[in-house]
């Protein structure tokens, strides 16, 4: 990291707005050698004024400017955000103006999560999600797997009942750009199956639609783990037989053509399906051996373990 203080800033000590405040320096002294002083000048000065206003619990316009100054230099400083939020609410400040300031700040600091908590507090108080989804789309253009943004989005959907407000369509847009986006897959599950007071697993039409969707996405990228997990998750939760996926999985990995496997996830699935069949142990063993030796050797112990879980072998010899 090489963030530098912005040297253009006017020192607060030369700003008439602050002449009545005596800055409070960081505690120094031999008692706390782990907390002695060497701030870069601007940051150090801003923090001294911040300590001073917090000591008198001042909530004012200039405090908003001061906290903005600190945040610009160090957006991860959580105490500053909390103090800013308190000030905004105390002053009854225009929260839309705050959101307008927050947007570019969030776009600049992708990894920061204080911003998202702050945003949630504001939007909750505003009691409106207007403009939020378009902004999140902008965030996802920079990083479509940003965990903070996805968590915020789930909160938004729940808080404002946005289940049918285009979430599935948004997910599909993101998957069109990157079918391997596990966050988007998770969000699809959340909006389809995670709705409170509904059980989509009992709705045959939805289950069928989701299975077909996952299959279509697997065909685009057979070695992509996410849709395989999605597919297996539906089968498990809807209590469907694993064997209902046999024909599909065998498009990518089939007994008799073990040298032409196109997806280790498909191979693992057919191994599980064979294992459930009468006399399927030998076929399952071969599939697991292929995973252990050729297609996923880094997890050899996992595949060996799966082999040990198989039902006792039929007379057909397990071959490799």
């Amino acid at each position: 990291m090489s963030r530098k203080p912005q040297n253009k800033l006017t020192p607060l000590s030369e700003d008439p707005k602050w002449e009545d405040v005596i800055p409070i320096p960081q505690e120094e002294g031999s008692a706390h050698p782990l907390a002695s002083i060497a701030y870069a000048e601007n940051y150090s000065e801003a923090m001294d004024y911040l300590r001073a206003v917090m000591a008198t619990n001042e909530m004012s316009e200039r405090v908003l400017e001061l906290t903005e100054r600190v945040i610009r230099m160090n957006p991860a400083h959580y105490t500053v955000w909390l103090y800013r939020a308190r000030t905004l609410f105390t002053l009854n400040h225009d929260l839309y103006a705050e959101i307008a300031w927050l947007n570019p700040t969030a776009l600049r600091h992708q990894k920061n999560y204080q911003i998202w908590h702050h945003r949630q507090t504001l939007i909750n108080a505003l009691d409106s999600a207007d403009g939020e989804i378009p902004f999140l789309t902008q965030m996802f253009e920079k990083d479509s797997k940003n965990y903070h943004v996805w968590s915020y989005r789930q909160w938004l959907v729940k808080r404002f009942d946005l289940w049918d407000a285009g979430e599935i369509e948004s997910v599909e847009e993101l998957l069109k750009k990157d079918v391997r986006n596990n966050s988007a897959w998770n969000h699809r599950w959340f909006v389809v199956f995670g709705r409170p007071d509904t059980d989509a697993f009992k709705d045959e039409e939805i289950v069928k639609r989701e299975i077909e969707f996952a299959k279509s996405q697997i065909r685009l990228a057979p070695q992509n783990q996410s849709p395989w997990s999605y597919l297996r998750g539906i089968i498990r939760q809807a209590s469907l037989p694993l064997s209902s996926l046999r024909e599909f999985a065998e498009e990518f990995a089939v007994f008799g053509k073990m040298d032409q496997v196109r997806s280790s996830h498909a191979l693992a699935l057919v191994a599980d399906i064979y294992a459930e069949e009468p006399n399927g142990t030998a076929k399952a063993t071969l599939a697991l051996d292929m995973l252990a030796i050729r297609y996923d050797p880094i997890r050899v112990n996992y595949w060996e373990y799966k082999k040990k879980q198989l039902p006792p072998s039929s007379p057909v010899a397990a071959g490799t």
Binding site: Y147, W150, Q154, N186, W189, G194, Y230, R232, G233
Partner: peptide
Amino acid sequence: NFDGGYGTGPGAE
């Protein structure tokens, strides 16, 4: 979650 893992809260990746 459906993949066997856990997230920050219910529904989170």
